[in-house]
Design a protein around this nucleic acid. Structure first.
Length: 586
RNA sequence: GGGUUGAUAGCUCAGUCGGUAGAGCUGCGGACUUUUAAUCCGUAGGUCGCGGGUUCGAGUCCCGCUCAACCCA
C-alpha cells in the first residue's frame, strides 16, 4: 500500500537524477529537483537508484536471498561467533580471524545503518536481528562490482559474501567479493548522531523508532521474555492457560468504564472486557482448579503515563489457596521473571537494574491497611490524630474525620513536612464523598499512605524502596473478595506496590453465592444512584457459584506495568509498541 | 475535563527589540584504500503545526483550533 502523496513526486522521480536523464533537458531536470522539498528530493534520488538497478535487469526488491551463494549463509551473530578466536587483546587481527574461520566465505544480509567511503575503500555497518557487523568493501577485492556501491544508501537491505577479516583498527569485518542490493529504502533514516527523539514520531512511526533506537528494541525483547517467563513459571506450577471472551454482555470483574460495541447479526450490544475474572472463576467451578489467562483488556478511561485504553493483564486463580499463599507466590514470580530476564539479556538487564530505585531482593513488606493508616496518621505529627490513633488505631481516625474537617485543615497541614505534603483539598473531597467507614478507611489510605510508600518502606541499608503488600481492604471497596473470617468488615485482599506504583491486585475469592448476589445488588444500587463505574448483576455467575466453587485465591497483574518496572520505563507507551494516539496525518 | 510546556528543513536544534529564514547531520556533485558522528571542497533543501487578527512589516505580539509531552482530576 502506497503512502506517497499524489503530487509532484512521480514526475520528479523519473527526471530529477541527471545521470539517468536522457535528451537535452538537463537544466529543466535540475530545476525540478530544486523545486522539490528536501524529503521529495531524497525520495526521488532513491527511486532513481532503484530504477537504475531495475534497468540492469536486477530487482531492487529481490526475494532470492542466499540463492547462488557459495559461502555459508549466516545470521550476523553466527558469523561473529565463527571469528570468536580471532581476537587478540580485545581486538580482531586479520590472520587470527582467518585461522579461526578456516578462511571460509560467509554470506550475511541486513540493513545498512552506516556507510562511510574513503575512495577505493568503503565501510558499511550491517545489522540484522542477531547483531551488527562491518563490511569492508575494497575496490581491489570487488573489482568492477565496486561500482555497485553507487546503488546503496543508508537504510537499504543488502546481501554480502566474502571472507571474515579484521580492519586495521581491529574491528571484525566481512570483506565482500560480492555485494548486492536486496531491498531499496526510499526514505532516509533519522540523523545518525541524535537519532529520532521526538516522542510523537517515535510512537506514530514505531518502525523508524525501532531502527533508530536499539534500546527500544531491547525493551520489547524484554517484554516478550517477561511474558514468556511468567507463562513458564505458571505452567511449571501446574496452571492451565485458557482464553476467555473479550466481548462481554455484562460489565464485571473490575471497577472501570467499558468500551461498547455491537454485534450486527445478533443485534446485540457488547462490552469489550475490562477483566477476565468472572469467566476464569467459572472455570474453577468447572474443575480447572488452576487457570490463568494473559490477555488484552480494555478500559474506557483517561490516558496517562500509566494508562493505555488497551493493556495486557495476567489473571490466575488457584483453588484451595488463600491470599496469604499468593503473597508468597508473588514474590517467587517476580524474582523468577527478573532472574530469567537477567539470564537472557545480561547487559541490558544490568543497566536497568542499576537504574532501579527499588529492590526485589529482600522480603516484601506486608501491612494491613488500617495499620498503614494508623502509621501514616502518626507520621503527620498532628496531635489530634495521634490521640485518635492511640485510642482506636487506624479505625480511630475515622470518627475524627467523619464530618467536614475543612476548618481544621489549615492548622493540621502545618504540623510537619509530611502533613504539608498531603493533598488536602482532594483528600477532603474524597473523604466527604464516602458513604461508609470502609470507603473512608480506603480514602485515608489513598491520601495518607499511598503517596509515601516509597519513603516508608526501605531496604535494610535504606538505599532502595521495597515492594509493599497492602492487605485487608474494607469489604465495601471489593465486591468480589471474600470477607475476613475474624473481621467481616474487611476482605482478604492485597495490592502490591512496587516503587510506589500499583502492580498487583489479589484476594481470596468470595464463593458464597448469596453473599455474592447481595454484593451485586449493592453494585446495581450504586449504578442507580448515578455511579458509572459499577458492575452488573451477573445471574449466570451466581448460578455457577451455586454449583460450588472450591475456596480459591485469584491474582491480577498488568504485564505492561511489570515491563515498565523491570525496564525502568517512565511511560506505559514505552512498553506498548503501538500506543493509542489521536489520528494525525503525517 | 483543568493547568503548564512545546510544534521552525528528512532528523537534531538556533532564531536577539517585530525588519530579507540559520547551523549541524542527511541529500546531491567532487577528492580520498582502514573508517567508527570519518575528513575536506562545493551545492541543494522552508506552507516557521493550522486559521484569523494587530501592524507599513509577524517565525516573533494577540485570539481561536489541532497534535503531543508533563502535572492535576
Amino acid at each position: 500500500m502506497s503512502i506517497t502523496k499524489p503530487n509532484s513526486e512521480s514526475q520528479v522521480s523519473s527526471q530529477s537524477d541527471p545521470r539517468i536523464s536522457q535528451g537535452p533537458d538537463t537544466d529543466r531536470d535540475v530545476v525540478v529537483a530544486s523545486q522539490a522539498s528536501a524529503e521529495d528530493a531524497i525520495l526521488a534520488f532513491r527511486r532513481a537508484k532503484a530504477e537504475k538497478v531495475r534497468a540492469r535487469g536486477e530487482n531492487p526488491f529481490a526475494n532470492d536471498v542466499g540463492k547462488g551463494s557459495s559461502g555459508a549463509v549466516l545470521d550476523i551473530g553466527k558469523a561473529r561467533a565463527r571469528a570468536e578466536g580471532g581476537k587478540v587483546e580485545g581486538k580482531y587481527v586479520e590472520e587470527h580471524v582467518r585461522a579461526a574461520t578456516g578462511a571460509e566465505a560467509v554470506s550475511v544480509r541486513g540493513r545498512v545503518i552506516a556507510l562511510r567511503s574513503s575512495g577505493g575503500l568503503t565501510f558499511l555497518r550491517l545489522r540484522d536481528r542477531t547483531g551488527e557487523i562491518q563490511l569492508l568493501v575494497s575496490q581491489s577485492t570487488m573489482g568492477e562490482g565496486y561500482a555497485r556501491l553507487d546503488d546503496l544508501d543508508v537504510g537499504d537491505i543488502v546481501e554480502a559474501e566474502g571472507l571474515l577479516t579484521a580492519s586495521k583498527r581491529g574491528e571484525l569485518s566481512v570483506e565482500p567479493t560480492s555485494l548486492r542490493l536486496v531491498t531499496k529504502a526510499f526514505r532516509p533514516l533519522p540523523e545518525k548522531w541524535h537519532g529520532l527523539t521526538d516522542v510523537e514520531t517515535r510512537y506514530r512511526q514505531r518502525y523508524v523508532d525501532l531502527i533508530a533506537n536499539p534500546a527500544v528494541t531491547d525493551v520489547f525483547r524484554a517484554r516478550s521474555l517477561i511474558v514468556r517467563a511468567t507463562r513458564s513459571i505458571l505452567d511449571d506450577a501446574d496452571f492451565l492457560e485458557v482464553e476467555t471472551p473479550t466481548m462481554h454482555t455484562l460489565i464485571g470483574g473490575a471497577v472501570a468504564k467499558p468500551f461498547n460495541t455491537h454485534h450486527n447479526a445478533l443485534d446485540m450490544n457488547l462490552f469489550m472486557r475490562i477483566a477476565p475474572e468472572l469467566y476464569l472463576k467459572r472455570l474453577v467451578v468447572g474443575g480447572l482448579e488452576r487457570v490463568y489467562e494473559i490477555g488484552r483488556c480494555y478500559r474506557n478511561e483517561g490516558i496517562s503515563t500509566r494508562h493505555n485504553p488497551e493493556f495486557t493483564m495476567l489473571e490466575f486463580y488457584q483453588a484451595y489457596a488463600t491470599y496469604d499463599d499468593l503473597m508468597d507466590f508473588t514474590e517467587v514470580l517476580l524474582r523468577g521473571v527478573d532472574a530469567r530476564l537477567k539470564a537472557a539479556m545480561p547487559e541490558a538487564h544490568a543497566a536497568w537494574h542499576k537504574g532501579r530505585a527499588y529492590t526485589i531482593d529482600e522480603p516484601f513488606a506486608r501491612v494491613p491497611m488500617d495499620l498503614a493508616v494508623a502509621r501514616g496518621a502518626v507520621k503527620t505529627e498532628i496531635p489530634a490524630w495521634a490521640q485518635a490513633v492511640t485510642d482506636g488505631g487506624g479505625v480511630g481516625l475515622l470518627t475524627l474525620l467523619q464530618g467536614d474537617f475543612g476548618g481544621s485543615m489549615k492548622e493540621w497541614s502545618k504540623a510537619s513536612p509530611r502533613a504539608k505534603a498531603i493533598d488536602w483539598s482532594n483528600f477532603r473531597k474524597g473523604v466527604m464523598k464516602c458513604d461508609n467507614d470502609g470507603e473512608r478507611l480506603f480514602a485515608l489510605y489513598e491520601y495518607l499512605c499511598e503517596p509515601f510508600l516509597i519513603e516508608d518502606y526501605r531496604s535494610k541499608d535504606g538505599s532502595h524502596s521495597i515492594p509493599v503488600f497492602v492487605k485487608d481492604y474494607p469489604f465495601e471497596t471489593s465486591p468480589l473478595a471474600r470477607k475476613n473470617d475474624a473481621n467481616p468488615a474487611l476482605v482478604d485482599r492485597f495490592e502490591l506496590f512496587v516503587n510506589g506504583r500499583e502492580l498487583c491486585n489479589a484476594f481470596s475469592e468470595l464463593n458464597d453465592p448469596e453473599d455474592q448476589a447481595a454484593r451485586f445488588r449493592a453494585q446495581v444500587d450504586k449504578k442507580a444512584k448515578g455511579d458509572d463505574e459499577t458492575m452488573d448483576y451477573d445471574e449466570d455467575y451466581i448460578r455457577a457459584l451455586e454449583h460450588g466453587m472450591p475456596p480459591a485465591a485469584g491474582f491480577g497483574m498488568g504485564m505492561d506495568r511489570l515491563t515498565m518496572l523491570l525496564t525502568n520505563a517512565q511511560s506505559i507507551r514505552d512498553v506498548i509498541l503501538f500506543p493509542l494516539l489521536r489520528p494525525h496525518s503525517p
